[in-house]
């Protein structure tokens, strides 16, 4: 059992989401930076789709009643283990499994870069699944509530898991703040130079970004077609353009259908870049070479 002592600004349980229900109005949800969750899970010997914790801007504290193997990935944060006498016993690094003894506390600081940190525990977070997933869907409210001080999180079975076989995942250089996009499906709703316009100058990540989407501020994209687009299915990574002309990049809690035209879709490999962009960061788009 894990006791949430402080969740930080916003923290949720996330796995790889609930695919297959978009036609019933259910967002996919799941870790916004899925690669981060997958890595953290692998490091503790979990299947990649086990539920872990997604911290936003770090700054969380967790108490462990039983000992557990942990690993963190995604936005790099300082981490310390404190014992029950209130003395720091060790510092821990990202991308490496570590043991926390019963009664000890994990303190996570704020990330030096990036936005979302993934904490995996060997056995996974074992809250009740909803429609096959333990993810908190911030748009629809499906799944467990966001973490609060006092939330108790059960940990799953570890006996059947593979042994921990990796000491360290070497840290990768931070990726450039570039989102590669494939044009369409509705690029013909915009002026012919709109894609070039999208890529010409950086956009600033707005304060009101969340798990639904990264809202951007920058050059407005001009439509050539008036009127309303009939509601249509939306994919994660879609660059949706509302009437303001300011694009929104959809993350995993995006609505499954929408009525604003999508000028392009971010490559899956670059979704982590979008998910890790902080308010105030500047990101660029580039047309993908396919």
């Amino acid at each position: 059992m894990i006791d949430v002592l402080a969740p930080g600004p916003y923290a949720t349980v996330q796995d790889l989401g609930r695919p297959g229900y978009a036609h019933l109005g259910v967002p996919r949800s799941g870790a916004a930076d899925a690669a981060g969750l997958r890595l953290a899970n692998r490091l503790v010997g979990n299947p990649e789709g086990h539920a872990g914790l997604e911290l936003t801007f770090g700054m969380a504290r967790f108490g462990f009643r039983s000992g557990a193997w942990l690993a963190a990935a995604g936005a790099p944060c300082p981490m310390e283990i404190w014992n029950e006498r209130g003395v720091m016993s060790s510092a821990q690094g990202m991308g490496a499994p570590f043991w926390i003894a019963p009664g000890h506390e994990l303190r996570i600081g704020s990330p030096e870069r990036g936005l979302r940190t993934y904490l995996a525990v060997r056995g996974g977070i074992d809250v009740e699944p909803v429609l096959g997933s333990r993810s908190t869907d911030s748009l629809s409210g499906l799944g467990p509530a966001p973490l609060r001080a006092g939330t108790r999180l059960p940990v799953g079975e570890v006996r059947s898991l593979a042994s921990i076989s990796v000491d360290l995942a070497p840290p990768a250089a931070p990726p450039p703040p570039v989102l590669r996009v494939l044009a369409g499906p509705r690029d013909d709703w915009f002026s012919p130079d709109a894609l070039a316009e999208l890529c010409a100058r950086p956009y600033e990540v707005s304060q009101d970004s969340n798990r639904v989407g990264v809202r951007l501020r920058g050059p407005a994209l001009r439509r050539v077609r008036e009127g309303e687009l009939p509601s249509e299915g939306m994919v994660t990574g879609a660059v949706q353009v509302p009437p303001s002309g300011q694009p929104i990049v959809f993350l995993t809690d995006h609505p499954p259908t929408g009525g604003y035209p999508v000028i392009g879709v971010v490559l899956a490999a670059d979704l982590a870049v979008a998910a890790q962009a902080r308010p105030g960061d500047r990101i660029r788009f580039r047309v993908a070479g396919r």
């Binding site: 978009a22 036609h23 009939p230 509601s231 249509e232 299915g233 259908t257 899956a268």
Partner: peptide
């Protein structure tokens, strides 16, 4: 195919 999402004038098909 993972998702089939009908709309008023379209069907979105997602197949990673």
């Amino acid at each position: 195919v993972v998702e089939i999402v009908p709309g008023p004038e379209t069907v979105l098909v997602v197949a990673p």
